[in-house]
């Protein structure tokens, strides 16, 4: 009994020592700033002037400012449009469609299309932003094709700024759900689908009643990951359109940055950051519940 106790105590000590470096790193440079976000969201912190050294507690003022900010409804709308079209419809549904189309196809085409889609995923966001500023430019590749087809050139970035960043983000991020769905679809045993076919089930019925239910876990995981990734997208939008023209492509992430570093309202920026963290925390929580449910 005593030795067992010693054993588990030794194990506990070793565990603690092994976890310590990671715990310190995460604690100081990740959890601590997260707590700072919560604190500063209730202050009038600025980068310059007296409030930079002496910050005051202002209660819910920053959150009231969010509600009364005339620009805020449009920014929220932009965030949702970007999320739904580039994240959920774009990356997730499109990623699934590619994976579904690829199933049972020859290795050559899987390699070619797969590689091209993955290329977007491994390309640094700053390069993606640069490529697409050229692609959608008035004198860019897209307008070259538009003219080849006999239409008049379009000023994509000014007339359709949201469409431009949505398409750029689909290019950048579809690989994740494609790979996840490929793995999930390949995991469905062939004989399940074969026997359904013999029973005369249509392709649509197989998709609806066999494939989709069997990959439910993957679908919810990618849904949450894609949502979080899209909400957090900053560099590509900022470097591509700068949030403009006007605020037409300003999402919550970009607005938070602008409030802090262009308008110097860091406290207000922190309140937006807290809002983003809260949305993230909620989705993460749902995600964990799903994983726990799968474990049991």
């Amino acid at each position: 009994m005593k030795t067992r106790n010693n054993m588990s105590r030794k194990k506990l000590l070793t565990s603690a020592l092994l976890i310590l470096p990671a715990a310190v790193l995460i604690g100081v440079y990740y959890v601590y700033p997260m707590l700072m976000t919560i604190y500063y969201a209730f202050t009038d912190l600025t980068l310059t002037g007296s409030a930079a050294t002496q910050t005051n507690f202002v209660g819910l003022k920053n959150f009231k400012s969010i509600l009364t900010d005339p620009k805020f409804p449009e920014i929220l709308k932009n965030t949702l449009v970007f999320l739904v079209f580039s994240g959920i419809i774009g990356q997730q549904c499109f990623g699934f469609a590619i994976a579904k189309l690829m199933k049972k196809r020859k290795a050559g085409i899987r390699k070619f299309t797969g590689f091209m889609v993955v290329l977007g995923w491994i390309t640094p966001e700053i390069i993606a932003a640069y490529m697409f500023s050229a692609f959608f430019n008035d004198k860019g590749t897209l307008n070259m094709f538009v003219k080849l087809l006999g239409f008049k050139k379009v000023s994509w970035i000014f007339e359709y700024p949201m469409l431009s960043i949505v398409l750029a983000n689909i290019w950048k991020g579809s690989a994740y759900s494609m790979l996840m769905f490929q793995a999930a679809l390949d995991g469905i045993p062939d004989d399940v689908i074969e026997s359904a076919k013999i029973d005369g089930a249509s392709k649509f019925n197989i998709l609806k009643s066999i494939e989709l239910p069997m990959i439910k876990g993957t679908t919810s995981t990618t849904f949450i990951m894609v949502t979080l990734g899209t909400l957090g997208t900053f560099g590509m939008i900022y470097a591509f359109t700068g949030g403009g023209p006007g605020v037409k492509t300003t999402t919550l992430s970009v607005y938070m940055y602008k409030q802090a570093f262009s308008a110097f309202q860091v406290g207000y920026g922190m309140a937006i950051a807290l809002l983003l963290l809260a949305i993230g925390a909620f989705l993460s929580f749902v995600y964990l519940r799903l994983i726990k449910a799968n474990q049991d």
């Binding site: 997260m34 700072m36 990951m225 560099g235 922190m270 950051a273």
Partner: peptide, 26 residues
């Protein structure tokens, strides 16, 4: 151990850019 693992996964899934102001301040 399993709670620590889930806690880590929780941290993983927060939108990264939301931390940029506070890490700057840090």
């Amino acid at each position: 151990a399993s709670n620590v693992s889930l806690g880590l996964l929780f941290l993983t899934s927060l939108p990264a850019s939301a931390m940029m102001l506070s890490t700057y301040k840090l």
